[in-house]
Design a protein around this nucleic acid. Structure first.
Length: 558
RNA sequence: GCGCCUAUAGCUCAGCGGACAGAGCAUCGGUCUUCGGAACCGAGGGUCGUGGGUUCGAAUCCCUCUAGGCGCGCCA
């Protein structure tokens, strides 16, 4: 529960009520109201909130927008938050918040503490967010890092928005690519032991496979050479998978990304989940036999082609597994909402996945798929090929170790998922001092430093009077702090965590500006010192919350 | 050929139906006796890729075209 975010909602309600009263009084014709939208005006002189409702009503009523604005404004009931309401040309209604209400919010933030910014939008409904889910056939690369950061930040925000969130990694431990991985590993194993062996054409040629083979030799010796090939391949595959997975796990940990659940694709076949999921599709007539394979007739649902579910050799496709997996998410585990974060190369699967979810009798609206566009990696302006199969791949770990997890997180979060981005390692290192990460974290370190001084001087400010905060830099800072719940709400609604990075930067700017203009600890003015210390503590809370939502650290010093 | 994403200030990007289009970096010019200058203040810089349309109102919605990226397997 948050008073702040309620202000916006409260204004919407006030506007609706005022419009109805205006209608009852005859000043407005009785028509059904459009959606009432309240937003933040760009210009401060237009107040804290504004609505263009009168402009929207102008056409249907035939009245001038400004006249409508005046009529409605007249009926806005007084509230403790609002200083004044104004009708402004061409037809806006502007609201300005009361200064004393604003300053009072500092106390509110202090009492809310870590929970400030949390809202009850989700009301505990269950959301599963599945991300990364990279095939365990090689290390993570930078693009995977983008999805990882996106997913974990989004999970943080959704949690703050009152959803019950579960983060999941889907392990593709079945299928032909995993078999190719096993055969590749076997070949490298043999080669390392001096036995000539040929890599499969669909194999994994990265150097990490050679290293993996050597590691296995060091740990297990040459005992697999004695086994028949299928047995050796199968055993090596299992051991290799485990090793790669633990590598992936530790790479993610380095980035500060964790999961609640690691879901094995193979388990869908082992426990009958696959068969269960197919049955509603059979019953719905969505599966047909064609060319001795089983197809999902997505064309019947408006797709441009059908998709094979079971191959002519009887083995299920990746798509089939995905169907079973989503059946498991929605039907077995009963998530209210499922969010998948996929790379741009999976974009073509979005519509058929939604189609199949619909065919399973689940409202496709409950499945949200976020596509994160490609990251192209550069070094000194030169593009670096990112391919699991090239020997020269730049792995995520390397990047994180070079620029740091915080910088990675901020950088990846600072742009929307659907824009592709270039990431130049040289640039990131060379310009690290200008990195916005430091700007934002510096604001936090400054706050920490002020509070250290206060502690050192043993200033007791618990009785500080926030009502003394009245200057423009102070109120500007408070206004910005009050936006956090709205940012959380907006991100939870749009599933666009990049707004966090912008908000963090704005908050830091406003704080730096306040700091420059308002001396906090002053020997002459004890009253002001105490009031401002309260403000600073509140600012620390808000900044820390923002950075934590981004998954970043808060440095006491830097 | 079809589908998805992108095109906004010199650069990197926000804004996605409302009031003169914003930020960071870069450029130029200012601010330092006290809490951390990794700071602050200010200036210049944009016919929002093109051409249509819808609307009282479009960077924002629809269509055309152009350019770039990614997909379109009985791979995953």
């Amino acid at each position: 529960m948050s008073d702040m975010i309620m202000v916006k909602q409260k204004l919407v309600d006030l506007l609706k009520q005022a419009a109805v009263k205006a209608q009852e009084s005859g000043k407005l014709p009785s028509l059904s109201l459009p959606d009432v939208v309240v937003e933040h005006p760009q210009k401060p002189e237009h107040g804290d909130y504004a609505s263009s409702l009168p402009l929207k009503l102008a056409r249907s009523t035939g009245l001038s927008p400004l006249a409508i604005a005046s009529s409605i404004a007249e009926f806005i009931a007084p509230t403790p938050e609002i200083a004044h309401v104004a009708a402004a040309p061409p037809g806006f209604i502007n609201f300005t918040l009361k200064s004393d209400w604003l300053t009072q919010q500092v106390s509110y933030i202090l009492s809310a503490a870590d929970s400030y910014g949390n809202i009850d939008m989700g009301q505990g409904s269950r959301v599963q967010i599945e991300f990364v889910s990279v095939n365990p056939t090689g290390p993570l690369h930078v693009g995977h890092g983008r999805g990882a950061i996106l997913g974990s930040a989004l999970a943080n925000v959704l949690t703050a928005a009152g959803f019950s969130v579960e983060k999941e990694y889907y392990i593709n431990d079945a299928g032909s690519q995993i078999d190719a991985f096993g055969r590749s590993l076997y070949a490298r194993y043999q080669q390392s032991l001096g036995t000539p062996a040929e890599m499969p054409s669909e194999g994994y040629f990265g150097n990490y496979m050679v290293e993996l083979a050597k590691e296995l030799i060091a740990e297990e010796g040459d005992r697999f050479l004695a086994l028949p090939e299928p047995e050796a391949t199968s055993q090596l595959k299992q051991i290799g998978l485990k090793k790669i997975m633990s590598q992936i796990k530790s790479d993610l940990e380095l980035l500060g990304v964790s999961f609640d659940n690691w879901f094995s694709e193979r388990s869908l076949y082992d426990n009958g989940g696959f068969k269960k999921a197919m049955s509603p599709l059979h019953q719905g007539g969505y599966l047909v036999e064609k060319e001795s394979a089983t197809w999902f007739v997505s064309t019947a649902l408006g797709e441009d082609k059908d998709n094979v579910v079971v191959r002519s050799d009887g083995s299920p496709t990746y798509f089939a597994a995905d169907i079973a997996y989503h059946y498991n998410k929605f039907v077995e585990r009963k998530f209210d909402q499922v969010i998948n974060i996929w790379g741009a190369d999976h974009q073509g699967h979005v519509s058929r996945m939604k189609a199949v979810v619909g065919a399973l009798g689940i409202n496709p609206e409950r499945l949200k798929i976020i596509i994160s566009q490609m990251v192209t990696l550069r070094r000194g302006g030169e593009p670096v090929r990112i391919s699991k199969r090239s020997g020269e791949l730049i792995i995520l770990r390397e990047v994180v170790e070079e620029v740091g997890a915080d910088a990675c997180r901020f950088f990846f979060l600072a742009r929307s998922a659907d824009s592709q981005m270039d990431f130049d390692l040289e640039l990131a290192k060379r310009e690290s001092a200008d990195n916005p990460v430091y700007y934002v974290q510096y604001a936090y370190a400054r706050i920490a430093s002020i509070l250290r001084l206060a502690r050192q001087r043993q200033i007791d400010y618990h009785d500080g009077d926030v009502a003394k905060l009245s200057s423009e830099p102070e109120l500007t800072l408070i206004r910005k702090m009050l936006l956090l719940p709205e940012v959380v709400e907006s991100i939870a609604h749009m599933l666009e965590p990049h707004h966090l990075a912008y908000y963090a930067q704005e908050l830091a700017t406003v704080f730096h500006s306040f700091y420059k203009q308002c001396r906090v600890i002053s020997e002459e003015d004890e009253v002001m010192t105490k009031a401002r210390l309260k403000l600073v503590v509140a600012a620390r809370l808000v900044l820390a919350k923002t950075l934590h939502l981004m998954g970043m650290t808060v440095p006491e010093r830097m």
